[in-house]
């Protein structure tokens, strides 16, 4: 039995640690905690804003969780989160929550840098995504089959894309379905004959940092953060916070902070555009 004693000791230590953990969590409940979940587009930005908010307000914790716009809404409805992050507007059936815009973002069509196509008309993009155009030579490119990359169901970028081009997801003939923006960019960078749509900020950052992708204009307006900021770029969206109608003072304070000029530098660092400019 001598040898058996050591795992029991380790086990006892672990259990002790577990109890310590639970105990300290009871103490933690005195300090305020804000749980924010939702859009993965917004999560890194809001996490950074949360850190700045924590540094000003001692004892406050801002927990940011990701998983997609629809999760943000579901968590707020179920009371799992205080604030939901959404990178798409609310549907008519989703008016049971309150929404506040916090930043703007646009989406850009991207192709590989080596692709000779410089621009696509909106009709061409629609035909390409509904499987009516199969080859790049039909739109002025080289003789190669087109790889169409679409976003997964529940993604804010997908919804904006569908709404702007008046498409339905069941009519889209995609070869690859991706989740996050960087995933779309990596897929295009690795496949010279593919086309995708991603958040402009992310695409501009990567294109400026040597990733072999090219941003295509929409209606002759170049896809850039400048054109997003001056409001001329057509394919754009508001990024939202959603809450229940009875939100806490802390949640209200945080939303006001996110909408204030004190975080414009962070919004710019994450390649979005502040809402009031």
């Amino acid at each position: 039995m001598i040898m058996l004693s050591w795992p029991y000791h380790t086990l006892a230590c672990f259990l002790f640690l577990l109890m310590m953990g639970c105990e300290s969590s009871d103490r933690m409940q005195n300090s305020a905690k804000l749980v924010i979940t939702g859009s993965s587009t917004l999560a890194p930005l809001v996490a950074d804003i949360g850190k700045r908010f924590e540094s000003i307000h001692t004892g406050v914790r801002i927990d940011v969780q990701t998983g997609g716009s629809s999760r943000g809404l579901a968590d707020v409805r179920q009371g799992l989160a205080d604030i939901g992050m959404m990178s798409r507007p609310l549907h008519a059936t989703e008016q049971d929550v309150m929404s506040r815009p916090i930043a703007r973002d646009g989406i850009s069509m991207i192709v590989h840098q080596s692709n000779p196509v410089q621009a696509l008309r909106n009709e061409q993009i629609i035909k390409l995504y509904t499987g009516k155009i199969h080859n790049w030579k039909e739109v002025g490119g080289e003789d190669a089959p087109i790889t169409v990359i679409n976003k997964a169901e529940g993604r804010g970028t997908l919804l904006l894309f569908l709404t702007y081009f008046q498409l339905q997801n069941i009519h889209i003939r995609a070869h690859v379905v991706v989740g996050d923006n960087e995933q779309g960019i990596k897929t295009v960078a690795g496949n010279p004959h593919s086309i995708a749509y991603v958040s402009i900020g992310t695409a501009e950052f990567d294109a400026n940092h040597g990733v072999p992708i090219k941003l295509l204009p929409i209606r002759d307006i170049p896809a850039s953060l400048d054109n997003l900021q001056n409001g001329t770029f057509p394919l754009s969206r508001s990024l939202l916070f959603v809450t229940n109608f009875t939100s806490t003072t802390l949640a209200k304070d945080f939303i006001n902070f996110v909408q204030s000029a004190a975080v414009y530098d962070l919004i710019a660092q994450h390649y979005f555009v502040p809402i009031s400019s």
Binding site: L18, G21, C22, S24, S25, M28, S40, T41, A43, P44, D63, Q65, T66, G179, D180, N181, E182, Q183, K186, G201, T202, F205, D206, H209, Y271
Partner: peptide, 21 residues
């Protein structure tokens, strides 16, 4: 504490490569 949210290493790798430019 153990009741806090915490990010696992593999999730960190996933987020950095797929979500953070």
């Amino acid at each position: 504490s153990l009741m806090d949210s915490g990010r696992a290493l593999s999730l960190h790798i996933f987020d950095l490569s797929m979500n953070v430019p």
